[in-house]
Amino acid sequence: MELIRNKSYGGERPLFASRDLRLENVVILPGESALKECSNIEAVSCEFQGKYPFWHVDGFRVENCTFREGARAALWYSRRLVMKDTRVEAPKMFREMEDLTLENVVIPDAQETLWHCKGARLKNVEVANADYLFMYSSDISIEDYRQQGNYSFQYCRNVEIRNAVIHSKDAFWGTEDVTVYNSEIHGEYLGWHSRRLRLVNCRISGTQPLCYATDLVMENCTMDADCDLAFECSTLQATICSRITSVKNPRSGSIKAEGYGEIIIDKNLKAPGDCVIS
């Protein structure tokens, strides 16, 4: 493997189509597409300032690096990434990617990040300003995760999340086969139009949660006092270890809770309308 150490590169495509290359303490200055169409790349203790440095890359490892704001859209159309101990300050990262691992990564501006990705594994990752995170992605595994940002995980498939704190309005809309364990989810309109969403040992807050959901499962969850008008038009099996402020027109299944402030069943109840509430 060729080693490049303590150098800087700017302009357009300075390392285009490189193979078997290790970068140490390298600075990619403002410019475009520094490592486009590359394979088997290692970047250690590097700084990326220019746009689009890793596009169409097959097999690369990024450790102890920094992506500055100017390195926006840095990793697109690539596969087989391992990123560790890295700070990503640029928005719109990780698009149309396959087989990526992020560990000990901080993304303070995660707006429109991780779109159309398949096979993503995140461990000890923290994101902020994360509006529209994980749009249309699939086969995702997440552990020890912190998030601030709205409209996350929309239209995702096959997701497993453990030990997370998620602050997100409109999280998990239109998802299929998502399971969340031992986590906190805070935000309005959680899980609308989802299919087979499963929440285990989770704390939920925010108005009108889990409406229009199909085959929703909740096991040993708690719901804060602001969780009103829950489960409208949903089919579900729910065991809630707290009082629920209000439930409105669940379609079918069962809900068991410690108590209810209000149960609303009105003329807008949809068939079969046979949910057992106890």
Rank of each mutant, 00 (worst) to 15 (best):
M1G: 15
R5H: 08
Y9S: 05
G10K: 14
E12Q: 08
R13G: 00
L15S: 09
S18W: 03
R19F: 06
R22W: 01
L23R: 02
E24T: 00
N25L: 01
N25W: 00
S33W: 06
C38S: 06
S39F: 12
S45M: 06
E47R: 14
F48V: 00
Y52T: 07
Y52E: 12
W55F: 10
W55Y: 11
V57D: 09
D58L: 02
D58H: 08
D58V: 00
R61F: 08
F67V: 00
G70H: 10
G70Y: 08
R80K: 14
L81S: 03
L81E: 07
K84H: 08
D85W: 12
T86R: 07
V88M: 15
E89T: 00
A90L: 09
P91Y: 09
E96Y: 06
M97R: 08
M97A: 14
E98W: 00
E98M: 01
D99W: 03
L102A: 07
L102F: 14
N104K: 15
A110C: 11
L114P: 05
K118C: 06
G119C: 07
N129C: 12
A130Y: 07
Y132T: 07
Y132Q: 13
L133T: 02
L133C: 10
F134V: 09
F134E: 13
I140A: 01
S141Q: 14
I142H: 01
E143H: 03
E143M: 02
R146A: 06
G149K: 10
Y151H: 13
Y151T: 10
Y155N: 15
C156W: 00
N163V: 10
N163W: 15
A164P: 07
H167F: 04
S168F: 00
S168N: 11
A171N: 11
A171K: 05
V178F: 00
S183Q: 06
E184Y: 05
H186L: 06
H186M: 04
W192H: 08
R198C: 02
V200D: 01
R203I: 06
G206L: 04
Q208R: 11
Y212D: 11
T214Y: 10
L216A: 02
V217A: 04
M218L: 15
C221D: 10
C221E: 10
M223A: 15
C227R: 01
C227G: 09
D228P: 01
D228M: 03
E232P: 01
A238W: 03
I240M: 09
I240Q: 07
R243G: 05
R243I: 03
R243N: 10
K248A: 13
P250V: 13
P250T: 13
G253K: 09
I255G: 11
E258Q: 13
G261P: 09
I265L: 15
D266S: 14
L269C: 12
G273K: 05
